[in-house]
Design a protein around this nucleic acid. Structure first.
Length: 425
RNA sequence: GGAGAGGUGGCUGAGUGGUCGAAAGCGCUCCCCUGCUAAGGGAGUAAGGGCUGAUAAGAGGCCCUUCGAGGGUUCGAAUCCCUCCCUCUCCGCCA
């Protein structure tokens, strides 16, 4: 949610900013709604004031034993006018809410121009893609030869975009999450959390998945209007919803490992091979809750902390700054981390780190008490993968494959693999 | 799932139809007193929103809403009625 006051104050500026994303702000519709809101609200409030005053007068008259009947008849008539005004206000308010909640976040000035991923800007490149003396396989082929990655079995029970892992690869998958959690909690100072995987609609509205992206989510059947989280960002960020956080508590740096569920509606045909894009995958998620003045420093730190995972695994990667058109709905600025995949001979996203500034905080009323003003103000929320476990698994399999189809276990993972140094059939 | 109790400000906790947005205490802020420390005295202290607006980016003024959420009764609801959510205790079930 953008600051409604900013829209009233600088509509053109907002429109210009959103235009960078290719988003067209309907200024006339907004102006009309806002004018009507103002009129209806002023009217409703002044009617309420009048009713309050007269009701109090009745109270006073009763206390002194005066006649109240005439007064009461008077106020009754006010009621009808008030009801009408309130109905009008509610109707405009709902339309205005819908309008506002559909607006994406404003972009930070440093976000590069561009309409799609081809305009993203590489910030840095770390590590060298490995050289192979043979033609490297992709993870699907590797997994099949190892007999440890089984898409057919998953499809029989759950359909497409699911996978069954077994044996050494399943263990490797688990080892990766343990390594990531230990790294972030022990060396980066994050507080580990176990969180709900099913959340209410309010939580999803708070982080921006609803109302606009409902079709990307899985809902649970039954009467408990719960939905599966598409990322732990939802559960972690909502920890501060409807709270006023003391300044000393900031920054908060939170980590959780959860499964993530995405319907992937609208991505038919994309990444259908392998486990790049699944309905269910695991992710270690990092969330920072920060003072507004510090949030861009926090974003840099967040990215570095996510990168550390890839460094620990000895994987080549690059960091890109997403351009305007590629930046997500809730984000003011996003860095993606892309890992080198020999099977595809290109870099693929393995982490996305965003500063949402006050966009989510406003939606969920997450505030901090600014010591300078003594007032509660929206705080800034950031999130990033640290990192996607399924994709990290792919990267390890493909980058550490050997000519015989076995996979060497990266040094950093060996303690988590019971000392195993190689995965072979 | 069954029975009972309860959800009030940062916290504890009064308040059962009329100046109650809400006593009191704790906490916090400022001031006074006191040559450290401790103690004492006084004042202030919920949030969200609207209208208006001095100084060039906003003090002040006026007002509305909110006592778990949503409806209802009433001139008027923290207080009465209905529905839902949550918490606690006991029972049942279960990992």
């Amino acid at each position: 949610m953008l600051d409604p006051r900013l829209l009233r104050q600088d509509l053109d500026g907002v429109a210009r900013n959103l235009a960078r994303r290719g988003f067209v702000l309907d200024r006339e519709r907004y102006a009309a709604l806002e004018a009507e809101r103002k009129q209806a609200q002023v009217e409703a409030e002044s009617l309420r004031r009048e009713r309050n005053e007269r009701s109090k007068a009745i109270g006073r008259a009763k206390a002194t034993g005066g006649d109240v009947e005439a007064l009461q008849r008077d106020v009754s008539r006010l009621g009808e006018a008030l009801e009408a005004a309130e109905a009008r206000l509610e109707a405009v308010g709902a339309q205005l809410d819908e309008f506002l909640s559909g607006l994406p976040n404003l972009l930070h000035a440093s976000v590069p121009d561009g309409a799609d991923e081809t305009s993203n800007v590489e910030v840095r490149r770390v590590g060298e893609p490995p050289e192979f003396s043979f033609e490297p396989l992709d993870h699907v082929e590797l997994g099949k030869r190892l007999e440890m990655v089984d898409f057919e079995a998953a499809a029989r029970m759950s359909g497409s975009r699911f996978v069954v892992l077994r044996g050494g690869v399943a263990r490797l998958h688990r080892a990766l999450t343990q390594l990531m959690l230990d790294l972030h909690t022990r060396e980066h100072g994050y507080v580990e959390h176990y969180v709900p995987y099913l959340v209410g609609r309010d939580a999803l509205y708070g982080t921006g998945q609803l109302p606009k992206f409902e079709s990307d989510l899985f809902a649970v059947e039954g009467d408990r209007r719960l939905m599966l989280i598409p990322t732990a960002e939802v559960s972690l960020t909502n920890l501060v919803r409807e709270r006023i956080v003391e300044a000393e508590e900031l920054p908060m740096r939170l980590v959780a490992h959860t499964p993530c569920f995405r319907s992937e509606a609208g991505s038919h045909g994309q990444d259908t091979r392998g486990m790049i894009r699944q309905h269910q995958f695991e992710k270690v998620e990092l969330v920072h809750i920060a003072r507004p003045a510090d949030s861009y420093e926090e974003l840099e730190l967040l990215v570095r902390n996510a990168e550390a995972v890839l460094q620990r695994l000895g994987l080549a990667y690059r960091v890109v700054a997403l351009c305007a058109g590629d930046t997500g709905f809730s984000s003011a600025k996003t860095y993606d981390i892309e890992v080198w995949l020999p099977g595809q001979k290109r870099y693929r996203e393995i982490s996305s780190c965003s500063n949402c500034e006050a966009f989510q905080a406003r939606r969920m009323q997450a505030r901090w008490r600014n010591p300078e003003t003594g007032k509660p103000e929206p705080l800034h929320t950031l999130n990033g993968s640290g990192v996607a476990v399924g994709r990290a698994l792919i990267a390890v399999l493909e980058n550490y494959q050997q000519p015989d189809g076995s996979v060497r276990v990266p040094d950093a993972l060996q303690p988590y693999m019971g000392g195993e140094t190689v995965i072979s059939p």
